[in-house]
Design a protein around this nucleic acid. Structure first.
Lengths: 128, 128
DNA sequence: GGCGTAGTTTGACAGATACCGTACTACGGC
DNA sequence: GCCGTAGTACGGTATCTGTCAAACTACGCC
C-alpha cells in the first residue's frame, strides 16, 4: 500500500512571484464528492471535455465558454481546487490540463465514464 | 435509434390518493449534470451506496443517515428528481430503489464507476 | 514605456442548498 | 378510535453558488 503524498502541490513558472503560484490539492486530499460536484456544472463539464480531447494543455481562453472572463476564472478555480485539473502560468496565460493520472489512480474509470456519459448526453441533446 | 418515452413517470400504490403519487423524470429528461450533482453530496452518496448494496428496495429509514428525518426527505427527493432512484409508497413507508437500468442505458458504466470510486474513497478514509 | 491581452480580485446579486425544528398527514396494528 | 411510526410541508437560517461588472495585475510585443 503506497502512501500518497499529503502535501499540497504548487505549480509556478521558474522564478515566479507569489502571485504566480497555484496551489493544488495533494492526491490524498482529493475527495470524490468534490470531484463530482466540480463535474456537475455544465460549464465546467465543457472545460473538462475540451481538456480531455486536446493533445496538449489549453489556456483558459482556448475553450470558448458562454460566460464572462471572471466567471471563467471562477470555474477553472473550482476544477483546480477539486483536484480535477492542474494549472500553471505561462506568460500572460495559464495552461490547464486534466489530472488524469491522479484521478485514474484514485478513482479508476470514473473520469472516462463521466466523459463518455457527457458524450452520450450531448449526442442525445443534439438530436432532439 | 429508439426514442425514449418523454412522459414523466409516476409511481403510486393501487388506488392511491394524489398525495401518494410520486413523479419521476422520464429517462429522456435525466440530465448528467443533475445526476452528478445528486451524487456529489456525502449523505446522498451514502444512500445510493446502500441501495446499490441491497438485494431489495429499502425504506428511507433503512439507511441510517447523520441528519434529521426532514433533511432525509429532502435528500431522497433530490435523488428522485435527478432520476437516480425510484420511490413508491408502501403503507407508511416509502420504498426506494436505484434506477440502474435507466442510468446504465443512458450513461453506461457511470453508476458503477461512481460506486467503485466511493468504495475506494471510503477505504482510503477508513485507513487514514 | 505604451498598448493589448490573459486572467484576477472584489463586490454585488439572486437563487439554490443543506440543515433544522415544528406541526402535520397517512398508515397499520391493536 | 387510539397510538406509534414513517415520512412531509413549511418556515427559517446560514451558507453556498453561478454570474456579472468594474477595476485591476501581469505579461509580451513593439
Amino acid at each position: 500500500m503506497v502512501r500518497m503524498t499529503a502535501r499540497p502541490l504548487v505549480t509556478a513558472p521558474a522564478g515566479a512571484a507569489p502571485g504566480r503560484m497555484l496551489a493544488h490539492p495533494a492526491p490524498a486530499d482529493i475527495r470524490l464528492t468534490d470531484v463530482l460536484h466540480a463535474l456537475s456544472d455544465p460549464v465546467r463539464l465543457t472545460v473538462v471535455r475540451a481538456l480531455a480531447g486536446a493533445r496538449t494543455e489549453l489556456t483558459c481562453s482556448d475553450v470558448p465558454l458562454p460566460v464572462t472572463k471572471s466567471t471563467t476564472t471562477h470555474h477553472y478555480r473550482v476544477l483546480r481546487e477539486a483536484g480535477v485539473i492542474t494549472q500553471i502560468y505561462r506568460g500572460t496565460s495559464k495552461m490547464n490540463a486534466l489530472r488524469r493520472d491522479d484521478l485514474d489512480r484514485l478513482f479508476p474509470g470514473l473520469l472516462d465514464s463521466v466523459l463518455a456519459a457527457a458524450d452520450a448526453q450531448a449526442r442525445r441533446m443534439g438530436e432532439r
